[in-house]
Design a protein around this nucleic acid. Structure first.
Lengths: 272, 272
DNA sequence: TATACACCCTCCAGTTACCATAGAGTCAAG
DNA sequence: CTTGACTCTATGGTAACTGGAGGGTGTATA
């Protein structure tokens, strides 16, 4: 009693191509192949093997592994490990998908209010430790930060080391007073005698967005960023940063539309 | 201020190849390409677009759709639909994955007890309606089913229509008495004058396995099937079927190892 | 000025588990 | 003998990249 491939396929609830594919892979060879026509013939005895394949595939195991398994090249201790790994993988995937669903919800809510594609996109990055020369101080307004830059400039004097990235500002506190730190990133081994640089530790997850336009708009950028952070179930976990990717023309800080500034806030997932 | 592809990639936290890929797709073209070296140069102004792409991708939207979206070929009503569809899709996926995890658990438990790959694989199929000529009756034991077959045979006499599949038995009840129905599947339009066939309705989900060996072992097959059904959170929802894919040699029902029988039980997912 | 080294280019192959199609051959019934 | 359902091989496609070969470019240092 031989079955043509189509009949066998129906019994196993798979497509004919799939069977041919498995044949090519050697996963389940046809019991007999007609020498002249090339027709594959299967027997009912092969059905259990096909079903085993489908069952294992259904658990998410790759065809390669299934092959190894069925040819007894894999002990059931290994199978166990594979299964537990798969489970772990699935757990993570489910977790990720749930988070993605949350983000979609947030986006849909945003869409309710806003008409167009939002102007601020937020991403979560990891940030490496950065070594900086910096100058910290209290200011009475965000526009009074210049003196800090000048002090930094003076301190470094002529022996300025090379900056390894754009300058930025850290905001340590805004209440009761605004406390800022202006930073110039330098190489990990850079030294200027008599001055000490310090290292900002790495940040696991940093919510980031990019503001495009004059500094007067930075506040809306921060607002959008904070809104996102909140809507996506994060909480703030450190001083935020303002990174001057592209400075405005000197003297036009409030009007040059070509300025580009990255806004960053360290966050952690709220565990509620 | 132009950025080389590597710098731009770092800002967006993507790989250089990815940027080149997106360039090929036209998703985000380099702002300038050196005519001679072929070097791509990006500007900071392009960063927001890249971040938008990444944000949308992160929501699970395909690059194609993102392209359409950013080029304003897709209204935000459509975006909304896409997002809601995605959400639905994710919900189903999560559902599926949770079920898969359950199956893996069941398999792991099975592995605890059993040493080898299990001898019975279970699959869930959909089953089409089947038209049958059948003979129903009560028997005192599963070995007393022969008379039913003979009655069916007699009734059909010489005017036997062609069977459209293997013969099978339905088990309507096993308590207090065993009530069986022996069936011969026929075409939907087959008629034998004076006899009426009836139609077994389609079954949404049928738990199926294949028993390979003499009939005496059928009981272990059914046991395995029921165990699986139970372990995977299903409950029985109709009469089971025994399909004689390959009958044993006549007179050796209890010993012929080449018999192949498919065991089927209609089930529904337990809603607990 | 030479050279080292990091960076960039294009093109191609590979990943997974199949599906679709073309063009040709085969089988069983009427 | 034809018809229609089936089968064969071989190739190309899917999504979103990754990796590599083989070769050119840009800049900082010796």
């Amino acid at each position: 009693m031989k079955l043509k491939i189509g009949e066998f396929a129906r019994l196993g609830q798979v497509s004919v191509q799939t069977l041919r594919y498995y044949d090519d892979l050697g996963l389940i060879k046809a019991g007999e192949v007609d020498r002249f026509s090339g027709y594959r013939y299967y027997t009912l005895e092969q059905l259990p093997r096909l079903l085993q394949i489908l069952a294992l595939k259904d658990l998410g195991i790759s065809l390669q592994q299934i092959g190894a398994l069925l040819d007894h090249e894999m002990s059931n201790i290994e199978l166990r490990q594979v299964l537990m790994l798969k489970q772990e993988e699935l757990r993570n995937e489910v977790q990720g998908q749930l988070e993605r669903m949350e983000r979609i919800e947030a986006r849909l809510r945003l869409l309710e209010q806003n008409e167009r594609v939002p102007s601020y996109e937020v991403v979560i990055k990891q940030v490496e430790p950065i070594r900086v020369f910096s100058e910290q101080g209290k200011v009475s307004s965000y526009w009074e930060v210049d003196p800090l830059w000048m002090r930094l400039h003076e301190r470094l004097g002529a022996r300025k080391p090379a900056a390894t990235g754009p300058y930025f500002t850290l905001c340590h506190a805004s209440e009761p007073e605004i406390e800022l730190e202006v930073c110039m990133p330098v190489a990990m081994d850079a030294e200027v005698d008599g001055l000490d640089a310090h290292v900002l530790p790495a940040v696991e997850s940093m919510a980031c967005t990019v503001h495009h336009g004059p500094f007067t708009g930075l506040i809306t950028g921060f607002t959008a960023l904070m809104t996102w952070v909140d809507a996506n179930g994060y909480i703030i976990a450190g001083p935020d940063r303002e990174i001057y990717l592209q400075l405005p023309e000197p003297g036009h800080f409030d009007s040059d539309p070509s300025a580009i500034t990255e806004l960053q806030i360290p966050v952690v997932k709220a565990t509620a």
